[in-house]
Structure formats: C-alpha cells, structure tokens
Simulated assay, not measured.
Amino acid sequence: MSPLDDTATEELLRTAGLRSTAPRRTVLQVLEDHPHQTAAGVAELLGEAGAGMSRQSLHNVLEDLTRTGVLRSIQPVGSAPRYETKVDDNHHHIVCRECGAVSDVACATGRATCLTPASTPDFAVVEHADITWSGLCVNCAPTTTR
C-alpha cells in the first residue's frame, strides 16, 4: 500500500475527534503498509522501524483508533484481533486455517451472501455484516489441490 499523506492522516484523526500524535500516525502507517496485523505484529513492526512503544501505549492507540472508526478490528476464529485501515467499505476476509494469513475479499455481486438480517429485534440500526471465510492459502495447500 502507499504511504499515508501526513496532511490526510492528521485530518483523518481530527475528524475522528482525536489529536494527531506521533504514536497514532505511526501505527496508522504501519497498518497501511501491513494490514491485518495483531497488536503483537504491530509492536514487532514498530520495533523494526525504531519506533517502539510500550505495550500499554500501543493497546491504547489501537483502542482509540478502533473505537472512533479510524481502524477496523476483525477477530478470526482462533486468532487475536487483527487491525486494518480499510474501513470505508463492507469488504470481507478469508483466513488460512493453517498459517493464519488474511486477505480481503470484495463483496459478492449478483449472488450475494446473506448481508441483510431476516429480522433485527431490539436493534434500531444495523451497520454491516462481517463475513470470514476460511481455507488454505497457496503456500499451505497441498500441491494436489493447486
């Protein structure tokens, strides 16, 4: 992915009601470049870039960015939450059940999956559906299935 523009990043944070701090901007850039990371993965990438921060600070940043809709959090079965900057659409995910690799999947057109609930008891607003498929990535699938 391409680097986030500093001005756009600052505007994104301010629009979300957050101060534009160096830790928030750095975490956003890491997740823009490396989507679907766990907190541990983000911490490792920050350390490699010489921008490490305490575990608590990182979790606070991830919580703030997720709570305000700047980040999206998904939690595939058997995985820690994973974070991404792609929040402006209703895409879905496919997860390798062997190595845990995650890829984005665009919404189906034509023969759509169940994206609208049959009923919404006690809910006035329904925002989106989170659909996660599982399978084997090309690196983990046996050569006979390729």
Rank of each mutant, 00 (worst) to 15 (best):
E32Q: 15
E32H: 13
E32G: 12
E32V: 03
D33E: 14
D33K: 09
D33Q: 14
H34E: 13
H34Q: 10
H34T: 11
H36D: 10
H36S: 03
H36N: 08
Q37H: 08
Q37V: 01
Q37D: 14
T38W: 10
T38C: 09
G41E: 02
G41S: 03
G41A: 02
G41Q: 02
V42F: 12
V42P: 11
A43Q: 14
A43K: 14
E44D: 08
E44F: 08
E44M: 03
L45M: 08
L45P: 03
L46K: 07
L46E: 05
G47D: 14
G47F: 01
G47R: 04
E48V: 14
E48A: 14
E48Q: 13
E48M: 13
A49T: 01
A49V: 02
G50V: 03
A51R: 15
G52W: 03
G52L: 03
G52A: 11
G52Y: 02
M53F: 06
M53K: 01
M53T: 08
S54Q: 04
R55H: 05
R55S: 14
R55A: 07
Q56T: 15
Q56I: 07
Q56L: 05
Q56C: 08
Q56V: 11
S57R: 07
L58H: 06
L58Q: 05
H59A: 02
N60F: 15
V61W: 04
L62R: 02
L62I: 04
E63R: 12
E63M: 04
D64E: 15
D64M: 10
D64S: 11
D64Q: 13
L65C: 09
L65H: 04
L65R: 02
T66H: 06
T66S: 14
R67S: 06
R67D: 14
T68K: 07
T68Y: 08
T68V: 05
G69P: 01
G69E: 06
V70C: 02
L71M: 00
R72N: 12
R72S: 15
S73Q: 14
I74P: 00
I74L: 13
I74E: 12
I74N: 01
P76Y: 12
P76N: 13
V77M: 10
V77Q: 09
S79C: 13
S79R: 02
A80W: 07
A80H: 08
P81R: 09
R82Y: 05
R82F: 03
E84Y: 01
E84C: 12
T85V: 15
T85W: 01
T85E: 02
K86S: 11
K86A: 10
K86N: 09
D88K: 07
D88N: 10
D88L: 10
D89W: 06
D89L: 07
N90V: 06
N90W: 08
H91D: 12
H91P: 00
H92G: 00
H92Y: 01
H92M: 00
H92C: 00
I94K: 02
I94W: 04
I94Y: 01
V95Y: 00
V95W: 00
V95A: 03
C96W: 00
C96R: 00
C96I: 00
C96G: 00
R97A: 15
R97L: 15
C99N: 14
C99V: 07
G100T: 05
G100I: 02
G100W: 07
G100D: 07
A101V: 05
A101M: 08
V102F: 08
S103W: 10
